[in-house]
Every structure is written in structure tokens, then in C-alpha cells.
Write a protein that binds this DNA or RNA. Structure first.
Lengths: 343, 343
DNA sequence: CTGAAAGCGCTTACAG
DNA sequence: CTGAAAGCGCTTACAG
């Protein structure tokens, strides 16, 4: 611990609960009860306390509250990934906005934790020591053992996206299957018959489920589902996949790409090969990220509401922390097709 | 406070400092000294304590440390903006990564706070109550009074980007002036003579300083600096600005755009008007964001190292918190030109 | 270099 | 519905 940064001690002024109690003419206990919204407080006492709080600009000391109450009054947002590329993703920004929106007004702080797999042990004992009352997990890869391990130490957890494997960890996810299905139905309605897909990673539920939706769509339309090329949510992998598809099936007339960011690479290759979009090849992306509207041509895409995802995760976690019963173990959020020029 | 979410009390297990002391055969005081890296501890005691900590997987309770030590052991990352659009910005992601990297290993937590201007009063009393030892400010607009107000209540603050007006708030910024200057020098070296600019917002130092750099570059080359069109870091405003420039000066042969995201709109208009990039009009962006490499054609741009910006801000703040003297009040980080196809 | 004791500012049974 | 008292798990003078 020798690398620690010393933060100089310096008592901040500001009123204590004692002063609020004195001004309101009640005991510290009563002030505490008002602050915590407990029910057995007389209206008169409540008003007096609120007035005193406002007058003194009192803000309770969180450290003391946590210590006395044996709870952190904080939830952790854990981003678990090698190199934490996630942060660069607009996906993460949307999540953060949603989490924050749902937390607004509640006196719960947001702790941002980025954790490499090799630091998982540290993180686990940190959280086991009560530094957060619960955790939201944004872990890009399905094989990450963190969600399960956190769940095992008894910390309430909600995962972002369906964790792979038979896990009991609650999660919230977009309905990726239906999203993929809708994309194909749209392409079929356009009269396309050679519909390919550029997938997401095979070790993530988002990749797997979108692919399943695509397959289902082709089955519905009784079309072949042989044109599959793998990618990993990067433009480069999208370009490689599209090149492969074009070589394999020059008659391809549509492609469902599992992410807008990947579609950027797909569009570049199509352009370079002289294919008109959507005339020769129609393209549908996934996410409705900023990239979708700025792409050339603007991308038809399956919109997922990431902010809502963040809100829902937070709502689910806070519900569990409040001891609510009958909460759905997991939730699937709807997606919708956004039509632009590319399909 | 009636909207508060109740988080059920439940004491987490985990060892206390008392048990570490017992196992190491020393007093709690000595354990505390070891944990806090104080110097007057015998090597023997230190080793015994470290062994005990490892053995028990002890992790000190932050709430108790904060309360006893009268410091939060946390810094706040404050994002102050209407609607907090910032989060959607890759800029923010890079910052976050930098802040986190610099915090790694230090026992300082990161509190993420999003604040609308109308909530500034709440935020101020919250921070005045000691919930964070210092603050990092990402405030997109120069007229935001928050940096100054925080500085006034005595909370150590470092701003991201030069605050406008005569402010004493320490800041870290990219060298936007030199970035703009280098962009123009590059365009001049390419033989361009009718060099326009699409600016950033007038109420942000980034917009103002990049424009100044552009002007300086034109003055150096003894070229006219009449082709200025204003935009606001969005693709739409970039498109409008480029349309205006093209109407005003059909002979424009280069444009320095104050942000990659704005350049996306510029490129769309140039394409629509049948202008070849870079043959007819060379384009240089700013940021070297993901958009720069995925643009058509890939964008030559002024790279700023956002992650380094986040690291430097954090380093500066922690230094001040540790009571270091002789810290530079403010810092300017270098930019560099990244050449791609557009210029 | 080390330990005993006080205290940080709250919450929570407990008794009324 | 309310208050007095104990205690949450640490840090920090103080004395040695």
C-alpha cells in the first residue's frame, strides 16, 4: 500500500445532524428518521426537520451513514474487459446515462469500477467488504466468470446482456433474437432472396441471438441460410467478412450485419467492389448508433434502447436491494427497425 | 427524501482491522499505519501485518476510514451539461479511461456525478459536506459557473479544457491553437490557397483556440482568412456550414474542420455537391476519433490524446490533494497531425 | 517505533 | 411517535 496517495486531512465545515436536531427542537434520532423517510414520525416533527435542513443546507455525511447503517448506499458499475475497450463504445455511454437517470433522486452513489480479469480477486474482496450494496455488470464476453462469482458471494448483481452458460445471474438484455428476425423479414419484404449475415462474436449472447433471429427469418421465408461470415463488432472484421461473402456468393443481394460499427466495414468493401447500396446489396445494421445515421448511405438498422437497458438494470437491482419480491429474474427489452437508405 | 430507496441492512462478514492486528501480533494502530503507508513502522511489524492482511483477505472499510480520517478517499468526476450529451461522446470515454488508469493502485474511488445547471446548488452542498476530496470537471460550455463556484468553496478542482473568462481554476487542455496551426500548415504545404474553416462553438475554448490557430496559419502563409463558417460539433451543423462556404466561395480548395464529428457532415455535403476529396477540396478534422478512420475517405486529422488528458488531470488533482507544491497551475498537451486520405 | 483511548457522524434497537 | 445510549470500523493525537 506504499503507493497510496496521501490526501491531507482537513475537516470540512458544514452542519452536523446535531445542529439540525437542535434547530428543529427534536432528537438526532428523529432527524435521522426523517432523513431516511421512515413512517413513524409526526408531521410536525417532519416539517420542523425539513425546515432546519433547508435552512442549514445540511447534507448528511455518507461515510457515517454507511458505517452506522452497515450499508454502502452505493452501487458499483463494473466494466469487466481486457483493456476496457467498452468505454469507447457509444453503448457504454448510453448505459451510463440510463443508470444515472434511474439513480437520480435516490441517495445512492455510483461507483465506477473497471476491472481486468486478473484483478478479479481484488475486486471480489473489495466488494465483499461492503463497499457497494450491489453491482451492475457490463462484461462484454460471455465466458467471464465474474458475474457468477459475485452472485456466489451473495452480492446482488444484474448483468447487462444474457450471460452464457447455465447461470442464475439476473440480467437485462435487448431482444436480440426478434431484432435479427425483424431485419430479415424486412429484407424479405423488399424481395431479397440471397440474404447473408455478418455476425457478432460467438462468445457473446448478442452475437449468438442475432444470428438465431436471422436463421429463423430465413426459415420462415423458406430461403437458404448458408451465407454466414463471422466478425467481432469491429469495422475491420466487417470488411473481411463482406469480402469473403462476395467471393463466395457473388449473387448476394442483402446482408444483415450484427452491429452498425461492423456495417461500416461492410459498406466500405461494397463500395470498393462497385456494388450499389441498396440497389445491388441491401444492408441492415444493428444498434442505431450515431454511425448508422452518418454512414454512406445512412443505415437501416435495428434500434436497441441502451439507455432504457441501463435504467431497467438499475431498477431491477434497486428493487432487489429494497427487498422487493416477485421481481422478474431477467428482462428482455424490445427492439425496433429504423428505416433509412441502405435497405 | 421520501423517494429514497431502502437498502436492507445486512452485515457483511469479512475480517476487521482487529483480527488483522491479533494475527499479526500488533495493535490496531500499527495495522492502520501499515495500511496507510506511514514511515515509522518497523520492517518486522510491517511484514507481519502484510502477511496477516493477505492471509485474511482483509480489505479496509472505506466508510470507517473516511469517517475517522475526515476525508472521503474519493474524487468526483463531474459532468456538467444540459442533457449530459457528453456521455455519448467518445471524448468522454477516453477521459474516463485516463482517469481510471491514473487512479489504479491508489486507494481513491471514482464518483461519477452528472449535474444539470439547475442542480448545481445541491451538488455544491453535497461536495461541501466532504463526499469527495476533489473534483475533475468535464463541463462542455465555457460559461458554466460551476468550476469557479467549486473553487470558491475550497474544493480542489481541475477542469478539462480551458475555462473561459478570467478564472483561477486549474485546467488541463490540448494545445488546440497549435493543432489548428499545424492543420493549416499541412494544407498550405499541399499547395492549397483558398483554405476555409468550419469552427467549433464560440463559447468553448476548444472552438476558439482552434480557430485562432487556423488564423495564425493563414497569416503565416499570407493567405486570406475570410472563409469562416460556424458549427457546433455536430454533423448537421457541419453540413450547413459547408453548404454556406460552397455557396459563398465556389473556389474553396481546403477546409479545416474543428472536429471529426463535424467533418462527417462536411464530407456528406462535398460528396453531394460532386466535389472530390481531396482532389477538389482537402479536408482536415480534429480529434482523431473513430469516425476519422471510418469516414469516406478516411480523414486526415489533428490527433489529441484524450486519455492522456484524463491522466494528467487526475495526476494534477492528486498532487494537490497530497499537498505537493510547485504544481503547474495549468497544462497544455501536445497534438499531432495524422495523415490519411482526405488531405 | 508502538499501544490505549477518544472520537469521526451517523443509525438502530431499546425503552417509553 | 420519540429520545438516550450504544456502536459501526476505522484514524489520530497523546504518551511512552
Amino acid at each position: 500500500m506504499s503507493g497510496m496517495t496521501e490526501i491531507d486531512r482537513q475537516r470540512r465545515p458544514g452542519p452536523r445532524i446535531e445542529e439540525v436536531a437542535r434547530l428543529a427542537g427534536v432528537s438526532k434520532s428523529t432527524v435521522s428518521r426523517v432523513i431516511n423517510g421512515e413512517q413513524y414520525v409526526s408531521a410536525k416533527a417532519r416539517d420542523a426537520v425539513h425546515t432546519a435542513i433547508t435552512h442549514l443546507r445540511y447534507s448528511p455525511n455518507q461515510a457515517a451513514r454507511s458505517l452506522a447503517g452497515s450499508k454502502a448506499n452505493a452501487i458499483a458499475l463494473i466494466v469487466s474487459e481486457q483493456g476496457s475497450r467498452v468505454l469507447g463504445d457509444p453503448f457504454f455511454a448510453g448505459m451510463l446515462r440510463g443508470v444515472h437517470a434511474e439513480l437520480a433522486g435516490r441517495h445512492v452513489q455510483l461507483l465506477l469500477v473497471l476491472s481486468q480479469p486478473r484483478d478479479h480477486d481484488d475486486l471480489l474482496s473489495y466488494l465483499a467488504s461492503g463497499h457497494a450494496d450491489g453491482a451492475l455488470l457490463v462484461s462484454l464476453h460471455g465466458d467471464d466468470p465474474l458475474p457468477r462469482r459475485l452472485h456466489e458471494i451473495g452480492l446482488p448483481v444484474v448483468a447487462c446482456g444474457r450471460p452464457l452458460g447455465a447461470s442464475a445471474v439476473p440480467f437485462v438484455d435487448s431482444d436480440n433474437f426478434t431484432g435479427g428476425l425483424d431485419a430479415v423479414r424486412h429484407l424479405v419484404s423488399l424481395g431479397r432472396t440471397r440474404i447473408a449475415t455478418v455476425t457478432g462474436p460467438r462468445d457473446m449472447a448478442a452475437g449468438i441471438d442475432r444470428l438465431s433471429g436471422w436463421r429463423r427469418g430465413l426459415a420462415e421465408a423458406e430461403l437458404p441460410d448458408d451465407l454466414v461470415a463471422e466478425a467481432d463488432f469491429t469495422p475491420e472484421s466487417g470488411a473481411r467478412a463482406m469480402t469473403e461473402l462476395l467471393d463466395r456468393a457473388p449473387d448476394v443481394d442483402a446482408v444483415f450485419v450484427a452491429a452498425d460499427i461492423t456495417a461500416v466495414g461492410v459498406l466500405q468493401v461494397l463500395h470498393a467492389r462497385g456494388k450499389q447500396v441498396p440497389e445491388d446489396v441491401a444492408v441492415v445494421g444493428f444498434d442505431d448508433s450515431l454511425l448508422a445515421s452518418t454512414a454512406t448511405p445512412p443505415l437501416t438498422t435495428v434500434r436497441q434502447d441502451i439507455e432504457q437497458l441501463g435504467r431497467t438494470m438499475t431498477w431491477r437491482l434497486l428493487g432487489e436491494l429494497a427487498g422487493e419480491t416477485g421481481l422478474p429474474p431477467s428482462l428482455l427489452l424490445p427492439t425496433s427497425l429504423v428505416r433509412r437508405a441502405s435497405a
